[in-house]
Amino acid sequence: MTRHRRRRRLVVQLMAYAWMVAVWVLLWGDLSVANVIVGTVLAFVITTVLPMPPIDFHGRVRPLGVLRVLGHLLVEVTRASFQVSRIALRPGPAPRGAVIGVRLRSHSDLYLTITAELASLVPGSLVIEAHRLTGMLYLHVLDAEAAGGIEAHRASVLLLEERVLRALASDDELARAALPVRRAGSGRSGRPRRRMVRS
């Protein structure tokens, strides 16, 4: 098991390196050997001088789930922007807000962080406090009297968390969050890898 864990840490570290080198190359705007070398040196210096606390990640990345999260994010960000714009531009007083607490089902810092980030971008809600020990997320709702009201917002945050867990969590973590492990979602186009044959 330790060898497995060490390999996983190495993979995470290599991904962080690749990201930093990519940012460096993108900032300079041209892919040259010199840029890649300097980027690698910088990535090494940054990770040794400013080490990050290790991320406690035991999950399994499901590409289809990640795509689903990103797709929903795109739609929701657009909806949120137009909703806030409409409220800002329409005449009359602003709607009354509310602060609600939502208890998330998983207790991982990583999923709490991702859910909180995404919840701030989707319509209606803004995270103002996250309590990692109890897994509570406190959100401000812009229009508390809108369709569905407070309970609808609570449900939408939980749905968001479920999507994040389905994209990243392992079967074990899903079970502990009391979410049924769904094979159909990833199985339909995942497991028996289909080869696309051009005829």
């Binding site: 960000v77 949120a80 922007s81 137009f82 909703q83 806030v84 714009s85 800002a88 602003a94 807000g97 602060v99 701030s120 971008l121 319509p123 803004l126 103002i128 401000h140 812009l142």
Partner: peptide, 12 residues
Amino acid sequence: LARMHAATKPQT
């Protein structure tokens, strides 16, 4: 808090 809604979503 309502202002932060305006400053994050349509702005982004």
